[in-house]
Design a protein around this nucleic acid. Structure first.
Lengths: 200, 200
DNA sequence: TCGGGATTAGTCAAGCTTGACTAATAGCCC
DNA sequence: GGGCTATTAGTCAAGCTTGACTAATCCCGA
């Protein structure tokens, strides 16, 4: 949530709640994350309270509706955004929605850093899978464990699959895919006009 | 949470909060789900309020500590447990912790039903992956989409991996693995004595 | 011109999660 | 036998999420 909201405000430079809300809806975020109006407005207020966002008092609406509050990232907000982004890409135990958000903002990092974070991710996933495997399969025959071993299988399977995807992304980045931070022309971050939203 | 708490109470027939809490801790649930004391006690109260659990008033503690409340599943609680369990196994979009809990309770279902639910799961995963793939890759060359396509890749990758794990489990169940509901002798549902908890 | 629907913008209560705290008794050590 | 700690059992405030609701203005058709 914080990552999403900070990222959305950041792309606009200055944004009010409804703008953020629309961006996130456009990204399909209400489908794969907890980005619903209540959460968004709550996050904005909370982030402002914590000094990560600066709230510019109620500007009169330019196009109907009640007055609105505009927000802008502070220095601390900028730092927090990148800290969240880095953690989300590096850690193996973040929720899938957090990872998804992070991938959405990955082009805000320099290429070398993104690659290095993703390599940390692969390492973390592998060592975690290995840890689960050794802890859950001691000397005893797995049969004794009963169906609980299936949970172990599920997790290691997931971790390996995730590592596979990550390796693929690393390779594409190493081959120069996408325009990353500091590489000139910024690409559009929204979908082309007229394209349907598949998450509905 | 509801699934976990109902399942834990159900295994004891009648249990108080601390027992549930200890079971879940033993299963490592505090690591892979939101099963922390606050949530557990909250869930117990909420479930009791909704008539899924019956609260037997404060019995004096047998071994130190404040008095405690004992809970027992009602008819509705029993139904709700199985409804949650079936949904968790069948649906492709449940969180990983919910799926994990469901796998932990899968032996409470008859073998044939479990297999059939898991087959529904595979079908749901495949059709969802296909949907994402077709919606996100129209005629236009993928390059135009920029890095957002990576999110699509992440999801389809995950769905395929999940389907793979599910197919494996189906196969093991079809080959007679584990003791399911209505198959005589119930196996132990907890870890053997002295085995360390790997989630720490 | 006026009334009703769409759009814009946000609030609110109820439920859930988190992490830190409280409280009661039992057992042990000196 | 008095105090210290471990265990047992649970509470609480603050934050987060959900789904339904409110409120102001614009626009279009009769």
């Amino acid at each position: 949530m914080r990552l999403l909201v900070l990222g959305a405000v950041r792309q606009h430079g200055r944004a009010h709640g409804y703008q953020v809300r629309n961006d996130l809806e456009f990204w399909g975020a209400h489908e794969w994350s907890t980005a619903k109006p209540g959460s968004i407005y709550h996050a904005l207020k909370q982030l402002a309270k914590e000094g990560l966002l600066l709230a510019h008092e109620v500007a009169p609406s330019t196009a109907g509706g009640p007055p609105r509050v505009e927000y802008e990232l502070t220095e601390a907000g900028e730092e927090s955004f990148f800290a969240l982004l880095r953690t989300a890409l590096r850690a193996h135990d973040e929720r899938i929605d957090v990872l998804t958000s992070a991938v959405g903002f990955i082009v805000d990092l320099p290429r070398a850093e993104a690659i290095s974070l993703l390599k940390e991710r692969v390492a973390a996933l592998e060592s975690w899978a290995e840890e689960v495997r050794t802890h859950w399969t001691p000397d005893s025959p797995p049969a004794e464990w009963g169906h609980i071993g299936e949970i172990m299988r599920l997790w290691t399977h997931q971790a390996e699959s995730d590592a596979g995807w990550t390796r693929g992304l690393i390779e594409r980045l190493e081959n120069g895919a996408y325009v990353m931070a500091g590489e000139g022309e910024r690409e559009v971050t929204v979908l082309p006009e007229g394209t349907g939203n598949p998450f509905s």
